[in-house]
Nucleic acid binder design. Structure first.
Lengths: 239, 239
DNA sequence: CGACGCTTTGAGGAGATTCAAGACACGTGG
DNA sequence: CCACGTGTCTTGAATCTCCTCAAAGCGTCG
């Protein structure tokens, strides 16, 4: 038990290796000092477990420290729609800010460790610290940019979508210090297809075809990018 | 010239008929008083003219007072992608908050009259008025919700998309006091198709088929919803 | 080792696109 | 006020991409 406590206090926003990517990004040292007192650290979920449920009240912003998750919404027939995949250092929870009720569920794709900034703290912090609100606003508007990219994808072919997906994951991992050319896809083909708006069989076929022409090497979930240039060329295609 | 000035001062946020829908929504009377001093009112653009350009620096949030506009982004081949249509009383500009550079251009679909809240004023207001920041954050997160709906649409059939489009415009007009059953579509079939991710010929065919089975009555841009229930039933379809 | 879930592969079919051509509407100028 | 031209809208036919359904292969975890 004391170990747990030790772990809880061992990592602060100041010492966390994600401090340049997570909420503190852009805040001053003093602001980060404020933040560390408010953040609820070291929360765990196993694969398939939920970080927050669609329909539940908004309780704050979440920052993934390790592991990955999917952000899923549901249409009126209960079909799952994967809005996004979340990688370590990325923020979660903006789907609940506007209505104070979460539109999405956040589900762990593997064991995840995350920090939680309770909404009451967000408000408290906001009153005294406009820099912090500024950051939050920017982060939520980041989402806007991401969504635009998503919209563009939706008028492209299945091949282009898959190419984009691989490159996008690669970029995000790179930004966080992981290998950009070799990584594990923590989500199933089904999840990828759902996210990209194509059938999982189509994902499978395209991934295989990319392998056949030696653009990538893929074995189950383990992916290696061989020819990044060619992968990019799928996005450049006119129309 | 004095007429112009008179017009400029005649309408304030307090007296504007959109005050319950625009930025002031949720603010106290005192806050609105602050706001009215900062807002730049009565800006005009004619059909086809631009309110702000993609790539230009973010200069603030815009609120449409009359007329409609489209929010367009461009892919790397210069193809236009219509992110959203903007109706009177709706806000514009969030596409520039994150990076301080606009991702999108806002183009008038007909003559528009809009208010402009300069970004420096936004910052000034934010420091002293956390309620205002709260509102802005909420508005930008509203966008998140909207985008999710858009994602859902992208895995539906063309018929469902068109049905949704008509209903969505109808709802938004209703919320602003216009007729929900009879209105003018200010955008072209091309624009609608672009926005929905389908060919304009498909839009045309579907709209005609809706008319054939007497769900709507459409003549050029003038639209009348005859059987709203049936229109809704397209959205309920499993899968 | 067996069962279950995930992935791959194939065949056939549906929905939407593309291309092409004609109808219509609107604004301009004669 | 009408003729004309341009841009928008409609309609048709051929094509294609991707989906659906089905079944077999593979991997993993109890």
């Amino acid at each position: 038990m004391s170990n747990v406590l030790a772990a809880k206090t061992a990592v602060t926003c100041e010492s966390c290796n994600l401090d340049k990517l997570c909420i503190p990004k852009g805040l001053t040292r003093a602001d980060i000092g404020d933040l560390k007192l408010l953040v609820n650290r070291n929360n765990l979920r196993k694969k398939g477990e939920v970080i927050y449920h669609a329909g539940s009240p908004f309780r704050g912003i979440v920052a993934l420290r390790s592991g990955s998750a999917k952000l899923v919404s549901f249409d009126r027939d209960g079909n799952e729609i994967i809005i996004d995949f979340i990688l370590p250092g990325e923020l979660l929870g903006f789907d609940g800010v506007a209505s104070q009720i979460h539109n999405c569920s956040a589900v762990a794709l593997e064991t995840v460790n995350f920090c939680h900034l309770p909404s009451r703290q967000i408000e408290a912090l906001s009153v005294n610290n406009s820099a912090f609100q500024q950051i939050l606003l920017q982060r939520s508007c980041d989402q806007f940019d991401v969504q635009i990219q998503r919209l563009m994808l939706n008028r492209r072919t299945a091949e282009e979508r898959v190419a984009f997906f691989i490159l996008h994951i690669s970029e995000r991992l790179k930004a966080r210090g992981y290998s950009e050319s070799e990584f594990r896809l923590s989500m199933s083909r089904e999840d990828i297809g759902n996210h990209l708006g194509i059938a999982h069989e189509t994902v499978s076929r395209i991934v295989k075809s990319f392998q056949a022409i030696e653009i990538i090497d893929i074995k189950a979930k383990q992916l290696k990018i061989i020819d990044k240039k060619k992968l990019f060329s799928y996005l450049d295609k006119p129309n």
